[in-house]
Amino acid sequence: MESPRHLLSSAQLTPEETLYLLDLAAALKRRPQRILPGKHLALLFEKASLRTRVSFEIAMDHLGAHTMYLDPREVGLGEREAIRDVARVIARYVDIVAVRTYGQTIIEEYARFSSIPVINALTDEEHPCQALADLLTLREHLGTDLRGHSLAFVGDGNNVSTSLVITATALGMDVRIASPPRYQLPEWALVEAQTRARNSGGTFLATTDPVEAVRGAEAVYTDVWTSMGQEREAERRKIDFAAYQLNSALVAHAKPGAFIMHDLPAHRGEEITDDVFESPTSIIFDQAENRTWAQAAVVAFLLGADRAIQP
C-alpha cells in the first residue's frame, strides 16, 4: 500500500505546491465545492483551540465531508494509549486526521504509524496551516504574485514565525524577522529560510533590531510573547520582549499603510497595542477567516480530490 502524504512541516511543501494550495484555497473561497462527500476528518487535539477547530469543521462542511472532535481526556495520546496504537485505530475509522499537540516528535511518530494523511494543526515547533492562511491573506491584499513584497515579523522565533518565514521565502518575498537574542528562530529554520529565499529570488533577514526589520515593510506581523505551555516564563518574557511591542512608534517605520497581522489570540497591551490592533489597515480577522479555505485546500490535496476543484 502506498504511503499517505502528510503535512507535518511547512518545509515539506515545495514552492510550487505552496502556490498550488493557495490557488486551490482561493478557488474554494470564491465557490465552495462539495467534492468530498462521505469523507471523515478526525480532530485530535491536545491543546485548546478556537480558530483551528471551528475552521476545520466549517472547511469540511463546505467540502461535503464530516468532522469528529476527539477530546484529549478521551484519547490520552501517549498516556492512556500508545501513540502508534491511536494512529492505527483512528485510521480504521476516518479518512484524514488533524493533530494539534505539543512536540513535533509526537506528530512525527503519529504519522509514521498512520495509513491515512496527517495534518499538523499546531505543534510547539510549527504551524503550517496558519502560514498558508497568512499567505492567502497577503495575496488578497498585495496581489497574487508576492515576489518582492515585504513582510516583517516582530517577536518570538516560535512555531508561527517558523512556518511563516519558510512559506513566505519560498514565494520570493522580502522577509525579515526581529527577535530578542534568546528567542530567535531555530537554526534549521534559519537555514531553510535562507535557502528558499536564495532559490526563489527573495531575501531573508534575521535580526535583533525591530526597527531594522520593520523599516519599509508592507506588512508587519506579531504573535504572543508567551505561547501555550510557556506560562511559567511569562514574567521573564515580558521583560525580554518589552522593546518588541508592535505599537504606533514601531509601525511608523513601516511603509505608510502597512498591513497589520496577528494569528490570534492576542494579548492587547503586550505584544500589540490596541490602537495598532484596531487600525484601519489591520487584516487580522481576514487571516482568521482564511484558515477555513487554506485548510479546505490542504484536505482536498492530501485526499487527492484537488483536481475536482473548479476555478
Rank of each mutant, 00 (worst) to 15 (best):
E2R: 12
P4K: 08
R5W: 00
L7M: 08
T14V: 01
E16V: 14
E17A: 10
L21Y: 11
A26I: 04
P37I: 02
K39E: 03
H40F: 04
H40C: 00
L43A: 03
F45H: 08
E46D: 15
R53C: 02
V54M: 10
E57Q: 14
E57P: 01
G64V: 08
G64S: 10
H66Q: 14
T67A: 10
Y69G: 01
D71Y: 12
D71K: 13
P72L: 13
R73M: 13
L77A: 09
E81K: 12
I96H: 02
V97D: 00
V97P: 02
V97M: 00
Y102L: 06
Y102D: 12
Q104L: 09
T105G: 01
I106N: 01
E109D: 13
F113P: 00
F113T: 06
V118N: 03
I119Q: 10
A121T: 07
Q130R: 11
A131N: 02
A133K: 06
L136A: 13
G148T: 06
G148N: 05
H149T: 11
N159M: 02
I166L: 14
A170F: 09
R176S: 15
A178M: 09
A178I: 11
S179M: 09
S179K: 08
Y183R: 14
Y183E: 11
W188Q: 12
W188V: 15
A189C: 08
V191K: 15
A197L: 08
R198Y: 00
N199E: 15
S200W: 00
D209T: 11
P210W: 04
E212A: 15
A213L: 08
A213W: 07
A213C: 06
V214Y: 02
E218L: 13
A219R: 10
V220S: 03
V220L: 03
T222F: 01
T226W: 03
S227R: 01
M228P: 04
R232S: 12
R237H: 10
I239A: 13
A242Y: 02
Y244A: 10
Y244H: 08
Q245Y: 01
Q245F: 03
L246G: 02
L250R: 10
A252T: 05
H253Y: 14
K255I: 00
K255M: 09
G257T: 12
I260L: 15
H262A: 08
A266K: 06
T273W: 06
S279C: 15
P280N: 09
S282K: 07
D286I: 11
Q287D: 05
A288I: 14
R291Y: 03
T292I: 15
V298C: 04
A300W: 04
L303H: 01
L303C: 01
D306Y: 09
